[in-house]
């Protein structure tokens, strides 16, 4: 009984808590420093959007939350707690009880993320049987309800479909049904709409938001797309070279970015509709994770960089509760990045 109580997240306790996460990949030629000190908390029912260029470490962050990285060549440091479980300290068997039950994941490419030789129904039902120990027919019934919940037309027939028999949007709906099958406390979504057509993207985003509110899940939502992040996230974390360079409430981050990288990201997408658009490249090349510079990793591309930026990585400066930047100059009040004037864009949620 006390065991059960101990595992229940208390009202004050965040449902996800990450402390100083470091992830390195030991490859034959080099060591890739993919995550370099990420810390954050996520409250129950909140949506955190992680925004960043390709290669900034978004997927690695999500995968390390479920310890899904290849163990042989991955070195992880730091502490991860999810729904009362010490993820970093668990043995593999205990971990398999948490995965899929307490924390679930949606992947970017629904075609390759589903097993091609099993029906959708089996893939959902086996997860329910695994975690809840109910009979296969009961699990199948639940799978049907889940497909209806994600609004797949003629759900009963789709239960017996194979992934290749479905469209991309339908597959992603099935993937969402699968992820939600055991009512997880935390949902990790790794660019769940990037591979889809724009119209389908919007439907999936709306569905995810609706389900998130109905089920009260905490969600970490990774995206390339500023518009999508604005649409879904309560808070935004901007990622660069394996660090959160800025964290804050969505409106604050968008209206008054507190890091030059965020500002650059926003101006590069300021023209035209943001929705469905990938981030445009900002000048300079992304950092080489095999040999990061000593100072701020954005300094080589930063218009405002000074000598001191190149000496130490700026520590996290708290600008306001829940509002963090890793820019010394902004923290010291030397830089006001101002508003990139996004007021005419559809920040307001429909």
């Amino acid at each position: 009984m006390s065991q059960v109580l101990a595992n229940l997240p208390r009202a004050t306790e965040p449902v996800v808590s990450v402390e100083d996460l470091h992830v390195r990949f030991l490859l034959r030629e080099a060591t890739v420093a993919a995550i370099n000190g990420v810390s954050f908390d996520l409250e129950a029912g909140q949506v955190l959007g992680i925004l960043g260029e390709s290669g900034s470490g978004k997927s690695v962050t999500l995968r390390s939350l479920m310890r899904l990285l290849p163990p042989a060549r991955t070195r992880t440091e730091g502490r991860i707690r999810i729904a009362g479980h010490e993820i970093t300290a668990m043995d593999e068997t205990a971990l398999r009880h948490v995965r899929g039950a307490k924390v679930a994941m949606i992947f970017q490419e629904p075609m390759v993320a589903l097993d091609p030789v099993f029906t959708i129904g089996v893939q959902i039902a086996e997860t329910i049987v695994r975690h809840e120990g109910i009979s296969y027919s009961a699990a199948n019934q639940r799978a049907l309800e889940l497909l209806e919940m994600v609004q797949i037309p003629s759900a009963a027939r789709r239960l017996k479909s194979y992934p290749h028999e479905m469209s991309g949007g339908m597959r992603q709906r099935a993937m969402i049904a699968l992820a939600l099958s055991c009512r997880p406390t935390v949902l990790l979504a790794d660019e769940p709409t990037t591979a889809l057509d724009v119209t389908v993207q919007i439907q999936i985003i709306l569905l995810l938001r609706q389900l998130q509110q109905e089920l009260g899940m905490a969600v970490i939502f990774v995206t390339h797309d500023v518009g999508v992040a604005i649409e879904v996230a309560d808070r935004i974390a901007v990622m660069y070279a394996g660090r959160f360079v800025e964290v804050g409430p969505t409106e604050k981050v968008i209206d008054t970015p507190a890091h030059p990288y965020t500002a650059a990201l926003l101006t590069s997408t300021v023209l035209g509709s943001t929705f469905g658009r990938r981030l445009e490249a900002i000048p300079g090349t992304p950092p080489d994770l095999r040999a990061l510079p000593a100072g701020c990793s954005f300094a080589p591309r930063c218009r405002h960089a000074q000598d001191r930026c190149r000496v130490h990585m700026p520590p996290e400066a708290v600008l306001a509760p829940g509002r963090i930047t890793r820019c010394v100059r902004v923290a010291d009040g030397e830089l006001d990045l101002g508003s990139p004037n996004l007021s005419e864009r559809s920040i307001a949620k429909p």
């Binding site: 948490v98 992947f107 086996e126 695994r130």
Partner: peptide, 13 residues
Amino acid sequence: QEFVGTLHAKGLF
């Protein structure tokens, strides 16, 4: 392949 990641993410034995 990616789907093996999904299988582990579902918590299967």
